[in-house]
Every structure is written in C-alpha cells, then in structure tokens.
Design a protein around this nucleic acid. Structure first.
Lengths: 134, 134
DNA sequence: TGCCAGACGTTATAGCGTAACACAACGGCC
DNA sequence: GGCCGTTGTGTTACGCTATAACGTCTGGCA
C-alpha cells in the first residue's frame, strides 16, 4: 500500500470528492473550497491532475466531472474501470468490466492500436430511479 | 433505407463533417461554414443535435468533437459503437464492439441499470504513429 | 388559407479549461 | 548548512465549449 503523501491542496480536493455523493465539476469543487482559501480554477485543476495520475480520482468525460475512486486500488491491472451514471439522480457506480476490456483489447491488437487510456461510461437510469418510474 | 431529408443547415454541417479527415469541434465547424452564412454556435449545435438523434453523427466525449458516422447504418442494434482516437495524428477509427457490449449489458442487467447511451473511447496510438515511434 | 410544429437568427451569458508569469516549499547532495 | 533542481502555488488573463431566452420564419397539412 503506497500511501503517497498529498499536499494540502491535493488533500482538500480529494476530501471534497470523497465527501460528495455525486461527481463534482471542477468549478463546484472550487466553490466548496473557497472557505479554505481557494480562489482560482487552476488550483483545482492542478490538484486534480495529480490525483488522476495517482489513480485516486477518475474523470467522467461525458459529464465533465470528477469522482473519487471507489476501489481500494488493486492497481486495476487487467480489467478496465467503467462507470454507470444515472441521468436522474446523478449517482455514479464504478465497476470493473473485464469482458469489455478483453473485447477491446482484442480489437486493438488486431488493428495495431495501442490504447493509453480507455473510457467506458453508461448513461441511463439506476435501479432506484428506474423503479420510481422516472 | 430511410433517407431523411435534412435542412440546409443540417446538410451543411453533415457535409463539413464528412469532408473532414478528423473529428471537428463545433467551433471549427462554425468557422468552416462562415462562408455559408453561419454566424453563431447555436446554428451548429442545433444541426448537430438533429444529426446525433438521426445517428448520422457521433460525439466524441473525450475530446469534445464530432465525426460523421462511418457505417452505412445497419441501425447498430445489438453491438455498440466504439472509437479509437490517435493522440498523435488525431485520426479516429469507428468500430463495433459486440463483446464489450455484451459484457456491459450483463453487468447492467445484474445491477438493474438501464443504459440509454453508452460511450466507449480508446485514446492511444494508431498503427502508423506507433510504427513511426511517436 | 390558416394553423402550428419545427427550424432559424441573434444576443447574451454560463460553464469548462489553460497559458504565462513569478514566487515559495521541499528534498537530495555535497 | 548551503546549493540547486523539482514540484507545488498564487494570480491574472484568456480561449474554448455549450446553452438560455427571445422573436421570426417556413413549410407541410387539414
């Protein structure tokens, strides 16, 4: 377990994401940290950049938002991480997608494509919102 | 084959995307169509909205850009479409990902999640750029 | 012919992200 | 301890992405 030491800004941003129940945009994070002295978007983006590199945080491309990684970090070697985003309540579930990862890896191998980053995001209705008839 | 009739603006935007070799941002489309009388982003976004709904165009969430659909449109019923985006040359390959689609569908079924839209995007190096040692 | 849904044009504004600059804090190394 | 490179910070300013809100126009159809 590597326990990297985070700087104050990085820690604050990470805490904000962990405390949130849904993904946060960079500007929402900024607003929540104004009380801690944050003033400019760059302070947030720089912290996020590091947290993303460390794998502590994920970026949701389809909604321009960020979430704390929900897994204790087994270094997600072979199986990619995917996200299910509820369009109604905004809740996000992070899950491993080994079968999908394998399928994409096969295609990439055949096409000579070398993937550096893979994005898999489902938008739809979570069980609760679906049941609520939304 | 449905052959929906497009309006002038929709046709211009679609043509611009088909003529382009790489994905275009909405603002790039706007600039290319200024000669045709386009003046505001909304003219582009409204046309894109319709084209996306018709399935003639895809949106690449990870780079905020748009491409014309490269398949003649077999209504991609069961197998989702995925994209491989070269970080060096910007080229995009669209491909079907039946295995990945099946894996995600299984997870969704188990989790009670009803997907409305699925995004699968690989960023990396295409065969040519990879060979060029980039 | 008259209606009306859909498309269009325009202005303004909100939200997302980065460039460029200067300075401070930390850590290794002699 | 003093040097020095790396990393993080703070600030200003700016560019790109996307939508709100308004009114007008057009074309298909009863």
């Amino acid at each position: 377990m590597s326990e990297v030491k985070l700087t104050r800004n990085q820690g604050l941003v990470f805490d904000a994401l962990q405390a949130a129940e849904a993904p946060l945009s960079a500007y929402t994070i900024l607003d929540r940290l104004r009380g801690e002295g944050f003033r400019a978007p760059l302070q947030v983006y720089r912290a996020l950049e590091k947290l993303l590199a460390l794998g502590l945080v994920h970026r949701l491309e389809s909604i321009n938002a960020f979430v704390a990684c929900s897994h204790p970090h087994h270094d997600h070697g072979e199986s990619l991480v995917a996200f299910a985003i509820c369009q109604t309540c905004g809740d996000v579930r992070e899950f491993a997608a080994p079968a999908a990862a394998a399928g994409l890896r096969d295609w990439a191998a055949g096409a000579g494509f070398k993937p550096a980053k893979t994005t898999i995001e489902l938008s739809g209705l979570c069980r609760a919102c679906s049941a609520a008839g939304a």
